[in-house]
Computed example of a mutant assay.
Amino acid sequence: MRLAVLSDIHGNLEAFQEVLKDLDALRPDRVVCLGDAVGYGPDPDAVLEIIVRRRIPCVMGNHELGLIDPRTLSWFNASARRSLEITRTLLPPERFDEIRSWKRALRQDGALFVHGCPPDNVHRYLIEFTKDELPNLFDQFEEDICFVGHTHLLELVSWNGKALRVTPLALGETRLEEGYRHIVNVGSVGQPRDGTNSAKYVIWDRERQALEVRGVPYDIRTTAEKILRIGLPSINAVRLW
């Protein structure tokens, strides 16, 4: 069984479409989205329409929560908050109902899926935890593997009850060491921050206990131009490069 895990599409339709082409060629058994399908990017409605049409399960991200619960907007910096205010104007009412149906965590196929960190935290970043604190996260879930997003970075955290390993993930395959449990930070489709600008996502091969990081090129210029044209903060376009 191969499961594709996407996160942080952030309204980037061009990146999402190219990732979907890649997925259609690879034909994984399932696809899961870890939230933040919206925010920063110019096409939130088109991205959500595809998620709904393809019936891709999606957990709540902090940007979705910001849309449906204005009380959380104070947790965002000024640029992200302005992006959400504009995003709100780009969505029809039914999209908000769809987002409200998303859960903070999803359990399936022997894995836990959450936007921020286990067990169901939407806002806290995995990179906020020190190496002394990271082992405690494994007490928050029963599964052997948990997939998270939120940071836009790629990382593998592994714990066997005694030893902790924190490893950056690169493009290509990484085998999961036997005897360890894992938290996998899957990077970002729509706004990667790992030093390269291709759209990132991860495929988990459950039987082989392997992760494959995929990097998919897309038309960045078109996305950046749309961001500027509709008045989103310019940093949202600059970060794509």
Rank of each mutant, 00 (worst) to 15 (best):
D139T: 14
E177A: 06
D120H: 09
Y218N: 07
D205V: 05
I230Y: 06
L84N: 03
P217L: 07
F147R: 07
N77S: 10
W204L: 05
I68W: 01
T87S: 00
P70N: 10
L26G: 13
G41M: 01
P57R: 09
G172C: 07
W75T: 12
R165L: 09
A170E: 14
R55L: 09
R100W: 10
G231C: 03
I227D: 04
D29V: 12
R175W: 12
L126T: 02
T89Y: 00
S79D: 13
I68L: 08
F129I: 11
E14C: 02
V32W: 03
P92S: 12
R239Y: 08
R208I: 08
F96H: 01
P93D: 06
G66C: 07
P168C: 04
H10F: 00
Y218P: 03
I56Q: 12
E18L: 06
T130K: 12
D97R: 15
R175G: 04
L169W: 01
H152S: 00
R193Y: 02
G61P: 02
L169F: 04
E177K: 14
D109K: 05
I235G: 06
V31C: 11
D144I: 07
V238R: 13
G179K: 06
T222A: 15
G179V: 08
Q108Y: 06
A25F: 11
W241Q: 13
K131L: 11
Y125A: 04
N12L: 04
M60C: 08
E18C: 08
L26C: 14
R82Y: 12
G149I: 01
F129P: 12
E207K: 13
L26D: 15
I86H: 01
E85H: 03
R55M: 08
T72F: 05
H123I: 03
L48Y: 10
R175P: 02
T196N: 14
I127V: 13
D194W: 08
L211F: 09
T87E: 00
G39P: 00
P233K: 08
E18W: 11
V216T: 12
P168D: 01
N185H: 06
T222D: 11
K162Y: 14
P119C: 03
E142T: 11
C146T: 07
F96N: 10
T151E: 11
R214Q: 10
P93F: 04
V184D: 03
I50T: 14
N136Q: 13
V38L: 06
D45V: 07
L90Y: 00
W75E: 08
C146E: 05
I86Q: 06
R229E: 14
V186S: 05
V31R: 10
L164W: 01
T223Y: 00
F76K: 00
Q209D: 13
M60Y: 04
P44G: 01
A25E: 15
L164F: 05
N160R: 09
R221H: 12
V189F: 03
T196F: 15
D144S: 15
L211K: 03
L228R: 14
T130R: 10
L91D: 07
I235E: 15
T196I: 12
P118S: 07
R175A: 13
R107V: 12
F113K: 01
E18S: 13
A237L: 02
I227E: 05
I99F: 04
R206T: 09
E14K: 08
L112N: 07
G39W: 01
R95Y: 06
R100P: 09
L65D: 12
K200F: 05
P92V: 00
V59G: 10
N77K: 05
L228I: 15
A37W: 11
I68D: 05
L153A: 06
A4P: 08
V5P: 04
